[in-house]
Simulated assay, not measured.
Amino acid sequence: MNEVTKLTTAKDWASDQEVRWCPGCGDYAVLKAVQRTMPDLGVAREKTVFISGIGCSSRFPYYMASYGFHTIHGRACAVATGTKLANPELDVWIITGDGDALSIGGNHTMHMLRRNLDCQLLLFNNEIYGLTKGQYSPTSRVGTRSPSTPFGSVDRPANPCAFALGSGARFVARGIDVHKNLPEVLKAAHAHRGASFVEIFQNCVVYNDDVFASFTDKSVAADKQLWLKTGEKMLFAAGTKGLALDMDRHMLKVVDGDSDEVLVHDPRNRAIAHMLVEMPASAFPVALGVLYEDPAPTFDSAVTEQNQFAANGKAADLQKLVSQGQTWQVEKEPRAE
């Protein structure tokens, strides 16, 4: 944990910059959730850095009263890796969107996750390119009409959490922009040592409004949201329904809440985590909270340990370093008389 210089409040984490997103954008709710969460984490602003790529979500660093980088499209994970290796004491947060992280930045996201860099990655998923005026994105659903798919998208969408699990992520979670449980998900992500991947369902009111209404609307939320808690049964619909294993079909199934078959959530079970993120929304609730967590040694700690081993017993000598190997000296020629 970072060394704390003083206790902070949510206001301490809000910068003096005017927040500029479309009225009603879900980004406002995520920003407030993060600002409210930071004081509870006991971290110091001078040892915290928010790093973003390009997109609506990537304005985020301007609005946090900490250090930050607004980098280039898809490269937030690369910059974050360099930042953490240069100063392992920093608390690194990556802010990105579904287009930024899964299209041009897909390879960087994958490698950061498999390396297990100690950081928190918040992926704002609104299933659309908002900043560039509503083109379809890697997560847009089949049939999505947009300026780049006027007849409807024929692409099968990427599943961010399935991508993270497939990339070797050791912590995978989901939240909703306006849900009261989002701060708890953020706290769990921060407590995890290693790369924490958090997908946040974020509503774009201009180009993809209510795309998540089938499980976020208050009228259906109880039946369509499954908030997972370690060691507790996977229950939803006010406890009347639960999830169990269908051994014949090798998948999950919905059963009565009082059934002995109802699964107890174990975040270390990678196979079940894969099933949870791939449940079809038409027949299952959306799994939320911490889906998978199984800590492993971090990339930055391994690099630091290796560097310390390599430097053990050696004195730093820059002149010796630049003079070793094949070197030569240019002699000054005498001036012609």
Rank of each mutant, 00 (worst) to 15 (best):
A283R: 14
Q306A: 12
A188S: 12
R170M: 02
E331L: 14
F69H: 08
R114I: 12
V211C: 13
S103E: 13
Q319N: 15
L245R: 13
Q308T: 15
L7N: 14
T9D: 06
I94H: 06
R115P: 00
F236H: 15
T230C: 07
D246M: 09
A271L: 14
N307Y: 03
R335T: 06
T327L: 01
L90I: 02
D223R: 10
R174G: 05
G68Y: 07
V330Q: 13
D155V: 02
L243W: 09
G68P: 09
G166S: 13
F171S: 00
L235Y: 05
G166E: 15
A76T: 03
G175I: 01
T149A: 15
M275K: 13
T240E: 12
M247T: 06
D248T: 14
T144Y: 02
R141W: 03
A80N: 04
A101V: 15
L122C: 10
E261Y: 10
M275H: 14
H274C: 10
R170W: 00
G152I: 04
T216K: 10
K6C: 10
N2L: 12
N159T: 06
D223S: 13
L121Q: 14
G42Y: 08
L318T: 07
Q326G: 01
C161F: 03
T8Y: 15
T216V: 13
T298C: 11
A316I: 11
T83Y: 00
S214V: 06
Q135I: 11
K224H: 14
M279N: 09
G105F: 10
K11H: 06
N159K: 06
A244V: 07
L165A: 06
D16N: 12
G53Q: 03
I95P: 01
L245N: 06
E18R: 13
V79G: 00
A271R: 07
G24R: 12
D223N: 05
N125V: 01
T48K: 07
M1V: 12
T327A: 09
R45S: 13
Q324A: 12
V34K: 11
V322Q: 09
A237V: 06
R20L: 10
A158D: 06
D260W: 03
M1H: 10
A283C: 07
A164E: 04
E184M: 08
E305F: 07
V220G: 05
N159I: 05
E46Q: 14
T83G: 00
A238C: 04
H179N: 11
V277D: 02
H179V: 03
P297R: 03
R170E: 00
A336F: 12
K229D: 05
M112Y: 01
H192V: 08
G55T: 08
C204S: 11
I104A: 14
K47N: 15
P39D: 14
R36G: 08
S214Y: 11
Q225R: 10
Y292V: 01
V206D: 11
V290L: 07
V286H: 09
K180M: 05
T149Q: 08
I128S: 01
G257I: 08
K47F: 05
S214F: 09
P88D: 11
F215D: 07
V178D: 15
F215M: 04
S196W: 02
R145P: 01
V49E: 07
T132N: 01
